[in-house]
Design a protein around this nucleic acid. Structure first.
Lengths: 218, 218
DNA sequence: ACAAATATTTAGCTTTGTCTAAAATTATTT
DNA sequence: AAATAATTTTAGACAAAGCTAAATATTTGT
């Protein structure tokens, strides 16, 4: 696969949200910041190569083989993101562009060894799951912290309320996007919860918990 | 710079042995496994871009700017080689192909952080020196172990005598290509020497020392 | 159901990097 | 120093991947 073909495969995969959905030429063009006519050309080629199913005017989807390739790319992308954050001190919002390049490196041994070096991580710095070598992985869902069951952990990915006082609170308690939060206990009465974050245990009110989004897997 | 341009720059650099030598179109073509006519086209473009000096029929050399690019590529290549060997357990002879891909990744932060992560290594797994960020580096020379001065260390890169008994000796003493050897002491009388290799100290006869090549820097 | 709007494809052109074959230049030999 | 050999460049073609403009399908609104 060429670099460009791989980019198209990833775009089709992501637009189909991982399920094997048919996506439109226009959608792919927009996603990839290119023109619809270029997409038509490329999906024809991918179709001939057995990577995609394409019917003129009817959109395009990935074949089994195409999905395999997509999953391998996603796996590589997310492993590299973990590497950049954990080993090279990148912040969670700096990694995408570089991982976008690294995911195209071709070497099975490289990926396997990288996975091992990182301790076989399950999720990337954005809380998204990393497919196994065979392409299996759990879905990630975004939930408000108060909806996360006891014992589950997730990665902080956003806030519902973005008012200065709330953001100030998060800052003061050293809760940042990208942090892993584990729900230790919940108080039925007032909805407050105990969480563990970076080795620290803190108690959080319901108001806070209903305004913080976590990404949790499975 | 495109991937292809970078490959040409590296080829011209290596053929010129790092000094700013003029190299022939044919030599570049052979090195890159391509045709002389393709080289002509490319060096014209590199010349227009201010990367190379090219006079028809007279060969091509790198400009200052071109040399800077070459050194940056060499730096990246060798840092990635160290990474692959030290962190991902690649053996010294498996790294080249993968490093050849990784050297094209564009991110200054990536290279700086990688350098730091590896502890600012001075040489790659083949004993070749790694240019600093500014492009400075010491030359590497290949010497027989008996010619290496006391206190200097180098990396084992080859043998003069490749007879089975000699190779068996190396194997028994766990001396392998890629190992770092430090010369501790020399015996004037019989030319035998003490070396340190992988935390072990061993005594080696003159016959052995005159048949083992090390790469040492400066 | 038909016209208008939107989406998609086709046709033809551009750029990058490569190739082959022919022409031009430089080097070598006698 | 002329002839031959070797090297290098030019000219013209090709594949990949992209674009624009025009043509064709499909969808939507009434």
């Amino acid at each position: 696969m060429t670099l460009s073909e791989e980019d198209y495969i990833k775009a089709i995969y992501h637009l189909g949200k991982g399920e094997n959905t048919t996506v439109s030429t226009n959608a792919v063009a927009e996603q990839m910041d290119t023109k619809p006519s270029s997409v038509t050309d490329m999906v024809k080629k991918l179709s001939e190569k057995g990577v995609a199913n394409y019917k003129p005017y009817k959109g395009v989807s990935l074949t089994e083989y195409g999905q395999k390739i997509a999953l391998s790319l996603v796996r590589k992308h997310r492993l590299w993101e973990v590497f950049l954050v954990e080993k090279l001190d990148f912040s969670w919002d700096e990694v995408h562009e570089v991982a976008e390049q690294l995911e195209h490196i071709k070497s099975e041994k490289l990926v396997d060894q990288l996975d091992k070096h990182l301790g076989f991580p399950q999720v990337d710095p954005h809380g998204d799951p990393i497919p196994s070598k065979k392409g299996e992985f759990k879905k990630a869902i975004k939930k408000l912290l108060n909806e996360v069951p006891i014992g589950k952990s997730g990665i902080c990915v956003g806030v519902k309320d973005s008012s200065p006082p709330f953001l100030k609170f998060l800052d003061k308690n050293k809760i940042a996007l990208g942090d892993t939060i584990l729900v230790l206990d919940k108080e039925e009465f007032d909805g407050s919860i105990d969480i563990q974050i970076k080795e620290r245990t803190i108690h959080i009110s319901s108001q806070i918990a209903t305004n913080l989004y976590l990404k949790i897997t499975e």
